[in-house]
Design a protein around this nucleic acid. Structure first.
Lengths: 359, 359
DNA sequence: TTGAAAGCGCTAACAG
DNA sequence: CTGTTAGCGCTTTCAA
């Protein structure tokens, strides 16, 4: 075992279909069939091949398979920032559903820049069978270009010519405003997120409408970065015209805002009630625990995978005429839920409120 | 534009090297060279090919390239749980360094189960050029098997026959204990994480040693799940024999513990000072902001990529004799830093302390 | 049901 | 410096 001979064959390369074929005494094509369409080969032969292949440690080479078939079993999941807790549950859902379908996911991070997003996607496209675009910052047109190249599903953004999956923001915002109304608040400030965000516009519009219907007033400040720092920044503007109720674009913003509020002597929820959106990791252990509009993000991810995989199946059956060129597609919706925690409370009477800051 | 004719060529396929070659009036191999080793082709010709290729929208097909070369430009990053904030900075670092080197990362999630970890890795291996194993729960042997198949670097785990990168836990823990000592604490409880974690053993040992050297006493409770819930669970055991100072396996545990502590009438840091490890997202906005041992995780990820890519280069130059069969390898270390925030404070005199709970 | 043969798109010798 | 010629490992007609 310790002789120089050992060096002669330092590592035997992965066996190929030919090695297995030779060992099993069949043609390579038969081995191929045994692995790709077991139905089309004699049951006994198939069995024998499987056993021999296993013994030899044979594994099909996905790259080689991809060449003639064009299928890679890879799925691109494009997110603007892997470390944004908003994506966690989406990623988990996608992971789970993809693994179940025998797909591996290619996680494409784009650092919030739509230019990088294009570059990164361009690099990934030739490798994948399908694409999932989560909260994309790209233009509709850019997205269409991508959808032309591979089956694509867009998450959290509504499009009519590319399949999309959205959270029912309108309803979520309505619930939030209702909740505040019930607590006696009459005017609510919306702390806006990035302008490039489709969801942001959606949320603000929904809040305005809900407020109108409930005889309340809605104000908007922003845009701010959807981060804790953004929330801190928002405080400056908020303090100029404070209201007793706030809904923010997302939880991070809410957390930042609450921190700023506290530092400046406001009490939450005593002086101002705050509602976030997303129910991210951490929204339960910040102070106070945040009331937030939660979405079934994991489900969203799972559904997205199923949808896009179904689309690849379609594409295989009838090539050309991609989804994007067909009739308008209704976006699928998943519903939200208001999680009432401790950052919201009844509106204090003005007297009490005026006294509060720096009391 | 609206005629049936349009259907005849619904989508022209991606141009290949042959199309470009024809258009440029050169041999396919020349086009290939123009893209893979521009140096080896006449500058003008190369330029012309590039232009024509760009016009035609030609892009090299990575799958096809992978077949003859065996290189895929894909890098597997294996993590036990994408949504664990601990991995964030590592992922970012890896992302950044990989992108810079023209690599795309294949994110392999293993859901904390070493069985799934094997399955998922087996699925990914044939697709990638190299593997990064972050906080793996697999056995050393399983890791060795993987390292035999592809250049591998292990993060946060020390191995002698596979290149590894670790955080200087010993020093971090020592700093933590020193900090507590300076504040007047004499006995510190270590709240342990998962037993399968290499870092856990390391941390406990380091704390014990540091305590010994500083004439302090160290106690250990656990193991607990490295989560907020785990911290809550730890409180039960902790309350039986409370100490004025605690160091936890990680931040999540610390956050859970602090919450439990607060709920049970202990004050943090008044009654007990708490130190976490990792400086995760959220450790700054929990209450109180957590004093924690921070690691340059982003750097860790970057260094890991460079190391593993260097290894692939080596492997290409001299195949056989993989890294794993060579002499022992010293693990590389990155240093930690103690971030003092508000969860640690001077030890109160016993009198005050006794009065505190449920006061 | 199986075998033979022709590629998928690209790279890598080897000549010229 | 460029063209020619074999493949990489697998799938997929087409015959047998």
């Amino acid at each position: 075992m310790d002789h120089a001979e050992e060096d002669a064959q330092p590592e035997r390369r992965q066996p190929t279909i030919y090695d297995v074929a030779a060992a099993a005494g069949v043609a390579p094509s038969t081995v191929s069939r045994a692995f790709s369409r077991p139905g089309r080969v004699n049951a006994e032969t198939a069995e024998r091949i499987q056993v021999i292949a296993a013994e030899m440690g044979y594994r099909v080479n996905p790259m080689a398979r991809a060449l003639p078939t064009g299928r890679t079993s890879l799925l691109a999941l494009v997110v603007s920032d892997v470390t944004n807790p908003f994506f966690f549950e989406i990623i988990r859902g996608v992971e789970a559903a993809a693994a179940e379908a025998g797909y591996v996911i290619l996680l494409v991070n784009t650092d919030e820049s739509s230019k990088d997003e294009r570059t990164a996607i361009d690099r990934a496209i030739p490798l994948v069978d399908a694409i999932l675009l989560a909260n994309s910052r790209m233009s509709d047109n850019a997205i269409r270009m991508i959808a032309k190249q591979r089956p694509t599903v867009v998450l959290n953004r509504q499009m009519t010519d590319v399949p999309s999956l959205v959270v029912d923001n309108a309803r979520g915002m309505r619930r939030a405003v209702e909740h505040l109304g019930t607590l006696g608040h009459r005017v609510v400030t919306y702390v806006a997120g990035p302008e490039a965000s489709w969801a942001d516009g959606m949320r603000w519009r929904s809040i305005r409408e809900a407020a109108f219907e409930l005889d309340m007033t809605a104000r908007r400040i922003g845009p701010y970065a959807p981060t804790v720092e953004g929330g801190l920044a928002a405080l400056v503007d908020f303090a100029e015209k404070p209201t007793t109720a706030v809904v923010t674009y997302n939880d991070l913003l809410a957390i930042g805002l609450m921190r700023g509020l506290t530092q400046h002597g406001f009490e939450v929820p005593g002086d101002v009630s705050v509602i976030g959106v997303d129910n991210i990791f951490g929204s339960d252990f910040c102070t106070p625990p945040l009331t937030t509009v939660a979405s079934p993000l994991r489900l969203l991810g799972e559904v997205a995978v199923r949808t896009v995989l179904e689309a690849t199946r379609q594409a295989r059956l009838m090539p050309g005429r991609s989804r994007a060129t067909r009739d308008p597609i209704r976006p699928a919706m998943v519903t939200t839920e208001l999680l009432v925690r401790e950052s919201t409370g009844p509106r204090r009477t003005p007297r009490t409120r005026d006294a509060a800051p720096r009391a």
